[in-house]
């Protein structure tokens, strides 16, 4: 199906549960999670025979804010998965999952302290990654976090400087910004408006979580439909990033919807993108 020029490629992060609807006319992109695709015994590509215009590989362990760059073995495996699945981009999270290369893994990414030292290490690591990925574009995702470390600048400043310094793409996870804004009491619109001018290219993530009364926090669980507040923020993000948004991916990891649910959500993602990019 032909989509209006200028609209971002749109699709789901592939899960076994949404493979049956990946041929929906609203979909022309797919995101592959590296850790799922990197089966050492695989004989087929993870993308299989899915025919989409844009494929991105989403990694979890580049640990871009670690004091050392990721090791060559991991980077080579990442590049191999990107090549065999025809991916034009790779992404990972703005955070650290480990200390050094021979150190320990925490199991999930934590945000770096918003400091000059962390910024220097992060930029150096991103440069290293971009060199190794060569012509595959690299995007860094702003994460949802439960707490922050002491810092000397705001997250928005940190992200803006990182994008300016490295020229990497920004994977704006709209739901993560919404979650952080809810949990840390800042204006998500202001955050996006202040960072967006520094990004050359942008991808977006959308997902749904829930508000946990016990902890008094919005939890980005990828288990619910995209909430109304995030739809509004998504539209605003597209407006702010008009002309430089390559792709939008919806993530869902639990409590999967039925077929109609999968289809209606992705169609709404496209509808909004087309309204913004191709105004009536």
């Amino acid at each position: 199906m032909n989509h209006p020029p200028g609209t971002p490629a749109i699709g789901y992060a592939i899960r076994e549960q949404n493979r049956p609807i990946m041929d929906d006319p609203a979909i022309n992109a797919a995101e592959i999670t590296f850790e799922r695709a990197d089966d050492p015994l695989r004989v087929d590509t993870y993308i299989q025979d899915l025919d989409v215009e844009h494929v991105s590989v989403h990694a979890l362990k580049l640990s871009v804010a670690s004091p050392e760059p990721p090791n060559q073995t991991y980077l080579e495996a990442l590049r191999a998965i990107a090549i065999e699945n025809g991916a034009s981009s790779v992404s990972d999270h703005l955070g650290f999952t480990r200390d050094g290369d021979n150190g320990v893994e925490m199991g999930h990414f934590a945000p770096p302290p918003w400091t000059d030292a962390a910024l220097t290490a992060t930029c150096r690591n991103i440069d290293h990654i971009q060199k190794r990925l060569r012509d595959t574009r690299f995007y860094v995702e702003t994460i949802a976090y439960l707490f922050e470390f002491q810092g000397t600048m705001s997250e928005a400043d940190f992200v803006s400087k990182m994008l300016k310094c490295t020229g990497c793409g920004w994977l704006l996870d709209v739901t993560n910004v919404y979650a952080n804004a809810t949990n840390f009491n800042f204006d998500p619109y202001e955050f996006i408006a202040s960072v967006m001018p520094h990004a050359e290219t942008v991808q977006m993530h959308l997902a749904g979580g829930y508000f946990d009364e016990r902890s008094n926090m919005y939890i980005d669980s990828h288990s619910e439909p995209i909430p109304d507040a995030v739809w509004g923020l998504y539209r605003f993000s597209l407006e702010q990033g008009r002309g430089k948004v390559d792709a939008v991916f919806v993530e869902r990891d639990q409590d999967f919807p039925d077929e109609a649910g999968w289809r209606s959500e992705i169609r709404r993602v496209r509808e909004i993108a087309e309204q913004v990019e191709v105004p009536a």
């Binding site: 004091p67 200390d99 150190g103 934590a110 220097t120």
Partner: peptide
């Protein structure tokens, strides 16, 4: 950067 590495090693 050395101090940063020490901080992250302790945290991780």
């Amino acid at each position: 950067l050395k101090d940063y590495a020490a901080q992250l090693a302790r945290i991780a």
